[in-house]
Design a protein around this nucleic acid. Structure first.
Lengths: 341, 341
DNA sequence: ATGAAAGCGCTAACAG
DNA sequence: CTGTTAGCGCTTTCAT
């Protein structure tokens, strides 16, 4: 009874209490808790009974202190409510437990400070590894910051060779989408992808694929059809399209995001153009928006689950001791054909 | 030098190392780390220099073991990629740090086992509190399970009086939306809200509001217009509407989710009806889908940020020692008018 | 196969 | 205002 008095916190049954109750040593209780095979059935039963009776639940923090592992991964994303990132988060949250991890969410809100904090945290021992989709930091910055925890980058913003990285093949994806448009007879394809101040190189790659497809199929890629948005909003995308429609003839648009496709469709429809008869529209990311829009949007579909799986695999390997070079993995992509193109 | 040898783990600089380096006691280092005011400036500087020089970062796990607090909250949701939950998660992830917490994601995927695990975990000390949006467990079950950690329920599935709970006023919200339809002249309003096997009572409440509005405005609420879906898909919603359109005259639909509104619009449009001229459609949750759909969908908008803030406040109070009765808080809602109704 | 004891790194109570 | 020290609850050699 004496030992019961001092404690006010709940869950105060300790390993040692179970040991006392079952009249065995702590080690034996620990063995039972961990399903260690070499325990006499009789003892095991006695210990299990004590555990149940007392309602013992191991204290994770104490375990962590001694093992040095937290069993946690940080997932650092700009905004969880953006459909693409929400999808990614779902997959990560769903797959991480298979590798024995829980996931703590770190939302950077596209802020540089928050992104920096992801990499070099002021504290230690929060997580065993980090899966990070940067939007602000450049490759050099990421490579330069000293980090104390295994890190894998996801997405297309930066690729320091020293850091593990998972992405899709942006060149090939853009080439595929553009080729689809071109081979179905489109000749004036706009590229709605540039955004002012975008530090990522994803767009350069996609533009490269866009041009490659034109070259391969023998269609001139008019530079006037490479469109720039002022920001990432539906409105900015719509505005960019409005502007070009007034002065250029276009019959297709390849967008960097499904959201932009929404804006494009809106502007095109407002201009009296019909989708896809007059203008085909292709989005990017294959989010629910694309699926549910009317018309449903044809979209470049990164395999997000695979992206998540590969990223998780890489951090897990690092956590498990892999010390080698930074690895760069490519997740597959497809073009999901829907009504808009 | 001797102490450097044994350690292989990174981040192995300990508080005691800093103390030795700065030639002060551990207590003083601790005081500096915690920004404790009563430290002589000279000492503070010396300690800070040692911290920087050595790259010391406090070990959270050890701190937790002694303080008994993890500074973590679990957010348990069915699926993070559903727009409503993605929105909620964003707000929780954004607001939690203000109260000093990080957020661990727990995805239940609508599985009973996962929901049960949320409440009575086999382990202890992972998080200080839980914010939980159940979809499977009933009130009784939740109330019955012994739990060792402060819990607050969010949403509408269950309301054991013993448990803190945050929700919107479903009756009032449905009444508002229905009244909007009725006062703008609609007379045959369908309620697209029942789903087979839905354990939540949210719909009963909404139906109650739906009927109340009819009664108040003096319009007969035809029971034949209360529609049931076989599941939560766009297709099921579309199917329910197709069926009713064949045999009943309707001029408005109040949907339980924006997704259902998408399905309704699809079916209505396919039937040659125009939105909102022939049929008005109102969705629920005010997700991005509603904003970006064409036509944009008028939607019942729970104040998700407030929902998150209230929930966080409640767990935080419990964690801070509040022991009283279960509290039930109502977050505000509005009706966001868009093109569909 | 089981028991005893030494820490993991930090905080806080208690002295000084 | 600063230093000493005893744990937090668990894992894990090391004996037995």
């Amino acid at each position: 009874m004496a030992e019961r008095q001092g404690s006010t916190t709940p869950g105060r049954i300790r390993l040692v209490d179970v040991a006392a109750h079952a009249e065995v040593s702590m080690k034996t209780v620990s063995n039972v808790v961990h399903g260690h095979p070499h325990v006499r059935p009789e003892l095991r039963a006695r210990v299990q009974a004590a555990i149940d009776e007392l309602g013992y639940r191991p204290n994770l923090t104490a375990r962590r202190l001694v093992t040095g592992r937290t069993g946690m991964l940080a997932l650092a994303l700009p905004e969880m409510d953006q459909p693409y990132f929400a999808d990614l988060a779902r997959h990560v949250a769903e797959l991480a437990p298979e590798l024995g991890y829980r996931v703590v969410i770190e939302q950077t809100l596209n802020e540089m400070g928050a992104e920096r904090a992801v990499i070099s945290d002021r504290e230690n021992g929060l997580v065993d590894g980090v899966v990070f989709n940067p939007t602000q930091m450049s490759s050099d910055e990421i490579a330069g910051l000293r980090r104390d925890v295994p890190l894998v980058l996801i997405g297309e913003a930066a690729r320091p060779t020293t850091t593990d990285h998972v992405m899709i093949d942006n060149v090939a994806a853009a080439r595929d989408a553009t080729a689809h448009l071109l081979t179905s007879g489109r000749r004036r394809v706009a590229f709605l992808g540039m955004v002012n101040g975008d530090p990522s190189d994803a767009n350069a790659l996609r533009l490269q694929g866009f041009r490659a497809a034109h070259a391969e199929i023998g269609v001139h890629a008019d530079p006037a059809l490479v469109l720039t948005c002022t920001d990432y909003s539906v409105e900015a995308a719509a505005h960019a399209i409005e502007t070009v429609v007034g002065r250029q003839q276009i019959d297709a648009v390849l967008c960097r995001e499904d959201r932009f496709a929404i804006g494009a469709i809106r502007a095109l429809t407002a201009a009296g153009l019909s989708i896809p008869d007059d203008v085909a529209v292709i989005g990017w990311d294959d989010t629910q928006i694309a699926r549910w829009s009317a018309p449903a949007i044809t979209s470049v579909a990164p395999d997000k689950r695979e992206l998540a799986r590969l990223a998780l695999g890489l951090v897990h390997e690092r956590i498990s001791g892999y010390q080698g070079e930074g690895r760069h993995l490519i997740a597959p992509h497809t073009l999901v054909l829907r009504e808009s193109g």
